[in-house]
Structure formats: structure tokens, C-alpha cells
Design a protein around this nucleic acid. Structure first.
Length: 681
RNA sequence: GCCGGGGUAGCUCAGCUGGUUAGAGCGUCGGAAUCAUAAUCCGUAGGUCGGGGGUUCAAGUCCCUCUCCCGGUACCA
């Protein structure tokens, strides 16, 4: 008994700066919930943990922008997300938050442990310092003129206008975002976690892991190959967990380091609530706990490299047993560009559709091995033809039959004809699927059981037997009702709400509600049934069309690809070229009709050009020299037949001519007026 | 450009270390049945496994190459 395996299952900590959407659900919340519900049915000792990640500059900044306190921001998202999770039936044992006192203490203890062992390294770097505020300014707390596009309100880490990645020191005329104070450059000391030193240990540890998903191994190997680098663990910020070491005023522990410790703090909190404040150690420090992190693929690095390295450094904690990361769930129709995150919010979808319908749809397309695609039509068809048609129908036809033909009582039985044993056998393969984190397969097999139930009903034809073999008929219906109970157990991990409803329809309680009772006799003959209800009402076309419309409305990605695909061979001859060669280059006059910066790029501008009666788009690295608006209307010279290419994902169908020397760049322009499209030779 | 992941029936996806006629669900079409939310059950059709080349007795599965999509990274004359 003492040695029974304990399971510590975590779901990624959602950042309390955004609403959780169904992509998150598919990646990091529904899978562990299903898994945990299965373990609980098996009677395993399992705790399911998550909580809001509530620190970091993004939250602080959001607060400033909205002119509220960070507390208000995190409260908004924490409680909203928490409720959405409850509504969809994610049964966390605890959904904590990193702003809790217990977390601050835990994180500080962890930090001090490493600090006292001299594991953390001091490094000096140049940083902006505000004399007035008497502190160093974190990246996002600096505003200035973007060196790329000239935007005067660029942030220290990124220019929101042109999307360039910046460092605060690059900004022209930097100033404090809060007080407007002009900062000075000063040397700042920060503590670093020597991740590089753990390269070998991590590598060895990963290699020793069996049964990890291939996508996770690939990701980790990619990181290991390019070499692990030390990471700063302190940051200049007010909002966060204070660095518990002298001479570090105004510094907090960097969120990447502090947040995952939240799993530990949440466990502590869970046991404090249960009045067993020391029990958490049995899980985090015991030798028979399986720590399992469910996450999306964007989190693999943190959960399979960085956090384990930190745990190794600390030394007293267990390491993850598995990190079953999922790929991404895409929304069909609208290709979600990385810039705008068009997700379907969890809190919205649970208002429109029953939670189990959403759970079922998502569970059946879990991105376990590759990105998968969600569509509203899929949800509709899953509901109508699988949930209603197969599952709902079986329960309903059985119950209606028993009610009308057997006076609302469970008819008697003698012995079964093998169907229950068949179902019991199936649980073995289903169990295997759960154990291997193959939840989609588990769902398929589960539904196959329900299909078999329908087949049983069809094959035995109780509606015929009722006429002159009522007793035999009663036995079949008894079997079907027993199957209903078994189904309630089987589907519980995926459809907990429906599971409850079935129990209530059967007028039964949870005494036999255990995995090993599947395929057993769990209902007593003679008992009265409860009130019947339709488990899955049809979803009408209208309802689906409405969702599809609202979705498409927000998406305006209607760029058709051009068919012009002339390819020119460019052979590099050394020295002189003949007229023939020169003529291969098709130079034309083009008028700039639109121009904007390419998001996230430093130097690229996207230009829409008029060339004769055609339009074409080119991308050019000139934004350090020309602003988008001053480009419009200019008559420039372009190479018209250049092989098209993509720059940062944006199509470019040519190049413009410009002179360049010593960092100076000037465009080749046309003297006077001439029709765009005119040939240049 | 580079790194990683993909491209398998109309749709959504399975196919581990290469091995008999490539699978499932939904959808299609045909039939049976009528207890049931016109739900169920049986059967049918549908794939040159993105294109090309190679290794092998044998490749969706390994190698090369091309192409398209996704993510990361690169920044461009």
C-alpha cells in the first residue's frame, strides 16, 4: 500500500493575460483531464494541478495601458479562465495562481537554494536606468523612436508598428514609459542560471526516457544540438516574485524560472486546504511519483529541458516522468496567421454548445502527432451522427423500451449471452491506449463498444420478442441497461456530464462507478428507472452557419496568388556580359501605390506596385532609409522578371533598384513623369 | 535560405523497428429493420499513400531530389 504509484498530473499554466481558447484546450487541458478521469476510475492516487501564470511584464504593461492594477488584470483572466474550465468540465484538483503567497515563498525558497549553492552566475550587462525612479527599466518599460520605422512610441522589446524586434538600447530618444524620465545607460548585474552546464545531464536523462512521444524528443534534440545557453533568472520589474537576495532591490525572479515552480506551490496549497500541509512532499520528493506534464508544443523546451534542469540543480525534487506534448489545433477556413491569434475562446464556445459536445469533438481530433483541424461542421456532424446517433440513441432506445414495455422497471435476468463479457474484454485495449497517452484511440475504441451495443440491440430484436417471449425480451433489456451503466463508466473520461445524466436516467448511484465494474452486473432487477432525457439534441444547420459566418467576418485573407512565374536563369559569368545577357533583365518603371512595413521584420517594407496595367508586390529591405508613407506615389525602377521568393513569409515578385554605400541607401527614381510599366533599358 | 513537422480515400485522421489484396470514423450509394432524437444494422463504391529517381526479393514505411503547406529562424540586394 505504501508503495502505490502516485500520479502528479499538471496542465500548462495559462498566462493570465488572455482568455483560453480551444487550441489551448486541445493541447494542454482536455488531454490531462481525460487521462486523470481515467486514473481516478481505476482508483489510482492522482492529483491534477494547474493555475494561472500571473507575473511578467506583459501583465504589468497591460495594466498600465488599461490604467488598472496588475491585480485587476490577473483577476479578470484568472477567474474567467477558471470558470471556463469548470464549465467545460476540466476537473482540476486545484487551479491555483502564482500570485499567491505560498507560491512566492516556494519560488523564493527554490531560488535561494540555488543561490546558496553558488549555482547562479553573476553577469553584468548594459541596461537603461531611470535616475528618477531609481531603478533599471525592463524592456517593455522603455519607449522611444523605432530605429527602423520611425515610430515614436516603439517599445523596448518590439515596435508594434513595424513589428521589429528591438533591444531598449537601440531606441532613439528612449524614455521611461511610466514617468517619461530619460534613462541613462548603466551597468546592471543579473543572476543567470547556467543552463549550459546541464547540457550533458539533460541529454543523458532524455536518452534514458522510454515511451516519450517522438515530437517531443525531436524538439529537445534540436535544442540540445544547437547548445544550451545560460539564461537570466532575474529581471527589473516590480510585478513578480521578489529576488530574496540582498542588493537586488527592484528585481524579480524571471517568470520562465518562477512559473513552473507554481506546480509545486499548487500542490502545497492543495494539501494545506486538506489540512495535511506536509503531504505534498510525498508527491514531489517521494520516489514513487510519476510527474506528468501535459502541454502544447510551444512549451516543450520549458518542461523537458529548462524546468528539469532547474529541478536537477535543486536536487530534492523528482523529475518529469513524461511530457506528452501535443501539437496545435487549427481552425479551419481561417488560416490563423501568427500575428493575429484568431482562436475560438473557450468561454464563448461553452455558452453556445453543451460541454460534452465540445469535449467530444476536440477529443476526436486531438493533435497528438500532428497539427489538426477544427471545423464547426465537424462539430455538428460529430454531435448529430455520433453522439446523438450512436450513443444517445442506444441509451434512449433502451430506456424508452424498458419504460413502455416493462412498466419503468428493470426486468429480471438469468444469465447473459456474452455481450457483457465482450465489453469487459474491450476495456483491456482501451486501458492500453490510456496508458500510452493514445487518447484518440481510446475514444475510438470506446465508441466501438457503443456501436457493439447498438448491434446487440438490433440483432436480438427485443421488439419482436416482446410479443410472445416477454421473459427472454426482459433479459435482453436487462443486459442493455447493464450496458448503459458500463457505458456511463466508459465514457466518463471524455463525457463526464453525459455520464452523470445516464446515471440519473438509470436512477443509479456511484457505488459501482469504477473501471473494473465495466461489463459487470451493476443494476438490480426490479429497480425503478429515473426520468429519461434526450442526451444530445440535434444541432441544426442554422446554428452552425451562424458560427461560420462570424468567424469568416473577422478574417480578410483574400489574397490570390498570381500566376506569373517566369523564371530566369542567372548564370554568373565573370566580367563582361553581352547585350543578350543584359536583355534578360526586364527593368520597368513602377509606381508605388501602397506601402507598409512587414510585421516582425527589421528592415523590410512591403510595396504594392503598379506596373502598366498589372499590380505586383515586392518586399524590399529599405525601411531604415525610407518610411512607408513617403514611398507612396514614387516612380521607381524594378526588376520585373526576377524569380519570385518569400521574405518572412511575404511574397516578393521582384526587386527595386537602389544605390548603396557605407550604410547609406538611395532609391533609383525616374526623372519626371512617365507611364508606369515603361521599359527601362 | 537554413532547421523541424507535415502532404495517405469526398472530409477528419491511423499506419511501431520496410513484408500477404493500404486502414478507421464520418459522408456517398444500395439493402434490412421499425424499439429509438428519420436514429440503428448489413453491404457497396472511393486512394498511381504530393511528383520524380534510387536501395531492396519486398517501401506509404529507408536514401536522394523537386514541389506545396505549417512552425521556428534568417532579413534582401
Amino acid at each position: 500500500m505504501q508503495n502505490k504509484t502516485k500520479y502528479l498530473v499538471t496542465a500548462a499554466l495559462p498566462y493570465a493575460n488572455n482568455y483560453v481558447h480551444i487550441g489551448h484546450l486541445a493541447g494542454a487541458y482536455l488531454p490531462p483531464d481525460i487521462y486523470v478521469r481515467y486514473r481516478k476510475l481505476k482508483g489510482d492516487d492522482v492529483i491534477f494541478i494547474s493555475g494561472s501564470d500571473e507575473h511578467g511584464t506583459a501583465i504589468d504593461m497591460a495594466a498600465i495601458q488599461e490604467n488598472v492594477t496588475p491585480q485587476e488584470i490577473i483577476d479578470r483572466y484568472h477567474f474567467s479562465n477558471k470558470k471556463a474550465f469548470e464549465d467545460i468540465g476540466i476537473g482540476f484538483d486545484i487551479f491555483s495562481r502564482t500570485s499567491n503567497k505560498i507560491h512566492h515563498e516556494t519560488a523564493q525558497e527554490f531560488f535561494l537554494n540555488l543561490f546558496n549553492k553558488n549555482i547562479l552566475i553573476k553577469k553584468t550587462e548594459k541596461q537603461l536606468y531611470s535616475e528618477k525612479e531609481k531603478r533599471f527599466l525592463a524592456d517593455r518599460f522603455v519607449t522611444g523612436t523605432c530605429p527602423v520605422c520611425g515610430n515614436t512610441e516603439a517599445r523596448g522589446d518590439e515596435c508594434e508598428v513595424c513589428g521589429s524586434n528591438l533591444s531598449p538600447l537601440e531606441l532613439i530618444n528612449p524614455r521611461s514609459r511610466i514617468t517619461g524620465d530619460i534613462p541613462v545607460v548603466k551597468e546592471a548585474v543579473h543572476l543567470y542560471f547556467p543552463l549550459g552546464r546541464y547540457q550533458d545531464k539533460i541529454s543523458e536523462w532524455i536518452l534514458s526516457k522510454k515511451g516519450w512521444k517522438q515530437n517531443v524528443i525531436n524538439y529537445v534534440n534540436g535544442w540540445l544540438k544547437s547548445g544550451l545557453r545560460d539564461r537570466a533568472v532575474t529581471r527589473d520589474l516590480e510585478w513578480g516574485v521578489k529576488v530574496p537576495v540582498e542588493n537586488n532591490e527592484g528585481k524579480v525572479i524571471y517568470v520562465w524560472f518562477e512559473a513552473p515552480i507554481g506546480y509545486i506551490s499548487a500542490t502545497k496549497e492543495y494539501f494545506i486546504n486538506k489540512n495535511e500541509p506536509a503531504r505534498w512532499k510525498d508527491y514531489w520528493m517521494g520516489d514513487n511519483t510519476k510527474l506528468i506534464h501535459f502541454i502544447g508544443k510551444d512549451n516543450i523546451v520549458f518542461h523537458s529541458i529548462i524546468f528539469p534542469a532547474a529541478l536537477m540543480a535543486h536536487g530534492e525534487y523528482i523529475l518529469p516522468d513524461n511530457v506528452p506534448a501535443n501539437e496545435f489545433l487549427n481552425i479551419s477556413g481561417s488560416k490563423l496567421s501568427k500575428s493575429k491569434k484568431n482562436g475560438i475562446l473557450l468561454k464563448d464556445i461553452v455558452e453556445k454548445f453543451p460541454p460534452d459536445v465540445v469535449r467530444y469533438t476536440i477529443a476526436s481530433i486531438l493533435p497528438e502527432s500532428k497539427d489538426s483541424e477544427f471545423s464547426w461542421k465537424d462539430l455538428q456532424s460529430k454531435n448529430n451522427s455520433e453522439l446523438a446517433g450512436i450513443l444517445g440513441n442506444f441509451i434512449n432506445r433502451t430506456v424508452v423500451f424498458a419504460k413502455t414495455k416493462f412498466g419503468n422497471n428493470i426486468p429480471g435476468r438469468k444469465n447473459d449471452d456474452g455481450i457483457l463479457n465482450y465489453i469487459k474484454d474491450q476495456t483491456e485495449t482501451i486501458s492500453q491506449n490510456y496508458e500510452n497517452f493514445k487518447l484518440k484511440d481510446a475514444l475510438t475504441e470506446t465508441m466501438n463498444v457503443v456501436r457493439a451495443a447498438n448491434k446487440y440491440f438490433n440483432d436480438t430484436e427485443p421488439w419482436k420478442l416482446i410479443k410472445d417471449e416477454k421473459e427472454k425480451c426482459g433479459e435482453i433489456i436487462n443486459n442493455c441497461l447493464q450496458i448503459c451503466y458500463s457505458i456511463a463508466i466508459l465514457i466518463y473520461p471524455f463525457l463526464p456530464f453525459t455520464s452523470e445524466k445516464i446515471l440519473s436516467i438509470l436512477n443509479s448511484d456511484k457505488t459501482n462507478f469504477k473501471w473494473e465494474r465495466i461489463g459487470e452486473i451493476n443494476l438490480e432487477s426490479g429497480n425503478e428507472l429515473g426520468e429519461n432525457q434526450i442526451l444530445f439534441p440535434q444541432i441544426e444547420d442554422k446554428q452552425i452557419e451562424k458560427e461560420m459566418e462570424t468567424e469568416n467576418g473577422s478574417d480578410s485573407n483574400a489574397e490570390n496568388k498570381n500566376d506569373l512565374k517566369k523564371i530566369t536563369e542567372d548564370k554568373t559569368g565573370s566580367g563582361l556580359i553581352g547585350l543578350e545577357d543584359f536583355k534578360k533583365v526586364n527593368l520597368r518603371v513602377a509606381k508605388v501605390i501602397e506601402c507598409e512595413a512587414v510585421p516582425k521584420s527589421k528592415k523590410l517594407l512591403k510595396l504594392k506596385l503598379q506596373v502598366g496595367d498589372r499590380e505586383k508586390q515586392i518586399v524590399s529591405g529599405i525601411s531604415e532609409h525610407y518610411k512607408p508613407e513617403e514611398m507612396i506615389g514614387k516612380l521607381i525602377v524594378v526588376v520585373d522578371n526576377l524569380k519570385p521568393s518569400k521574405l518572412m513569409g511575404v511574397d516578393s515578385e521582384g526587386m527595386l533598384l537602389a544605390a548603396k554605400k557605407d550604410g547609406e541607401l538611395r532609391l533609383v527614381l525616374i526623372d519626371g513623369e512617365i507611364e508606369p510599366g515603361a521599359e527601362v533599358s
